[in-house]
Amino acid sequence: MSLDLVVAILMAAAGAATPLLIAALGELVVEKSGVLNLGVEGMMLIGAVAGFAVSYTTGVPALGAVAALLAGALVSLVFALLTLSLMANQVATGLALAIFGTGVSALAGAPFVGITTTTLGPLVAFDDPILRLLFGQSPLVYLALLLTLAVWWFLKHSRQGLILRAVGESSDAAHAIGYPVLKIRYLAVLFGGAMAGLAGSYYSLVLTPMWAERLTAGRGWIAIALVVFASWKPGRLLLGAYLFGFVITMELQAKAAGFALFAPEFLSALPYLATIVVLAVISLGRRNATHAPACLGKPFRPAV
């Protein structure tokens, strides 16, 4: 196997892992605050179409990424209003958001089907394969890695991160001590939406710089599964996202080489299967070792 092929495979793996990682980081922060938003897939699709539309109209893909970020945050605001202020059921609202996002993105993207746009590609081109692997990828790949570090630091070492975790652990206790539970959850949901939107734009701006319906192909669900797989830890999330990115790439490579390692259906089931295995293994061990936030999915209604 030539060095070029190895580098190509590794770069493809990083490419497949990056959107998973970005979306999952957002969902991790949301869940750490005690909110379960299952609408990641919908927010990603809305981000993908918004990013494509802005990139195509302005010709600047970076603006597209920013637009995707804002679009994702905007739809997540709807989710936050419904579940946090109006106490709607989080699971049902999240599923509705996923379906809503699929529909809206198809509608808004109808004029763009089949059109291509400029890629949000590497800033510098390298001929040397090693340099290309290290420095010649889309800026979003590096951004995702920086974000992982930032989220880890925020949750583990910052005061605001401690408060966010406290709200997810016990909203009543946090309220009694005097923290604005709803405000913190709103901010977390908005961050999650922005990350999902950005992750979505990776598909329409980097991986396949064109628009097609259901472009993200269910990867939003994999991102949610990854959060559980990673036991709500950013470091393990990075590991998980790259692992799945690698498996996805190997499967494509194998298919291109003319033999299938697994049926494609098995591949798409793999993340969920792995999540179940990980959960089972963890729960065999220490109690509550999954580190799930204790108030995950529970609504908060303060008495005033």
Partner: peptide, 24 residues
């Protein structure tokens, strides 16, 4: 000191005390 403690079970004693202070 609350009757139903306002503590966070999965966190350390130190973190719980820090959460109850304004500028720890």
């Amino acid at each position: 000191v609350f009757q139903h403690f306002s503590l966070f079970e999965a966190m350390t004693v130190l973190e719980n005390i820090a959460l109850g202070m304004d500028n720890p």
